[in-house]
């Protein structure tokens, strides 16, 4: 089930570039893990609701009030490339 194509597609979705060796390793690892995870199929869960939260999840609303101050310089300091107080990204549209 896990083919070279699967790995290539998953890597693209995960935004990871894998070397030849990494792709081969990923294929082995994923086959092994999924083979193990398939154990879950022994359990009939057709009538069981999925659990995504520990406590019953409800939307939590609050007023949208600004509480943080101006930390522009400190925040920009964490970026590797900054210009005129803005983050720099590669060109995204054909010019």
């Amino acid at each position: 089930m896990i083919t070279d194509e699967t790995i290539a597609k998953i890597a693209l979705l995960a935004k990871l570039e894998l070397s030849e060796t990494e792709r081969e390793q990923a294929k082995q690892d994923m086959r092994k893990m999924l083979g193990y995870i398939d154990l879950m199929n022994e359990l009939d869960t057709a009538e069981t609701e999925p659990m995504s939260h520990v406590f019953s999840a409800e939307n939590v609303f609050r007023e949208d009030v600004v509480v943080n101050g101006d930390m522009r310089e400190e925040m920009l300091a964490n970026a590797q490339l900054v210009k005129d107080g803005m983050f720099v990204v590669p060109q995204t549209f054909e010019g």
């Binding site: 999924l34 995870i37 879950m40 069981t48 609701e49």
Partner: peptide
């Protein structure tokens, strides 16, 4: 087959 299944198993474990 995987993610939802795991969440259902999670309910059973709970």
């Amino acid at each position: 087959a995987y993610y939802l299944k795991a969440q259902r198993v999670r309910t059973r474990i709970r």
